[in-house]
Amino acid sequence: MPSFGLGHLWFLLIAAGWTIALSAIAFLGGGVLGFFIALARISESRLLRGLSGAYVQLVQGTPLLILLFLIYFGLAIIGLDQLPALIAAGAGLTIYSSGFLAEIWRGCLQSVPKTQWEAAECLAMTRWQRLTRVILPQAMRIATAPTVGFLVQIVKNTSLASVVGFVELSQAGKLINNSTFQPFAVFLTVAALYFLICYPLSAWSRGLERRLNVGRR
């Protein structure tokens, strides 16, 4: 039986690169989708509010694992089973993060006092102008800390992409463990690599939050 060595570590490092790539895809895709869903959540149209609300409930009420299975088998049904695993994993994580980011950002948008909307309205701004010139700049300041915090959730949840056959950090660890059966060495290394990616983000998010609280005082 081979023992856990440098070659394995190299394999893990490359897999960690894929974890970061997948996280970036999920954040960018989820960010764009989530932004529009957040806008729909505070829209004046009841229909849009209802639909986007249902979407968020659906995404937040189902495990990511099930979402990934559904996309994987769904793609196969429409004949796209030859696509690289990265696409299926990216799509699943995009939907997942859009649901959560939309809800985080809706909260930030609504935490801007109503009087700001009114003040902007009284200056004869259109709804779009009110949103982009007055509300968004204020909401973004509040949103940075929780958004960076959610990045950590995304990175951690890419570990589930293994179920659609994508070899990222966790899956790589599992493969190595299958051949070496040294779970402590393998998974502690894997955990350490995740920690190295996630901890700076967590610390950054906390720092942002602290600065925001000081600024408000």
């Binding site: 950590v152 966790s170 955990a191 996630c198």
Partner: peptide, 15 residues
Amino acid sequence: RNTPLLVQVFLVYFG
């Protein structure tokens, strides 16, 4: 909080 649940599950089970 900075490592995935999946890895924690593996560590406990295989460990």
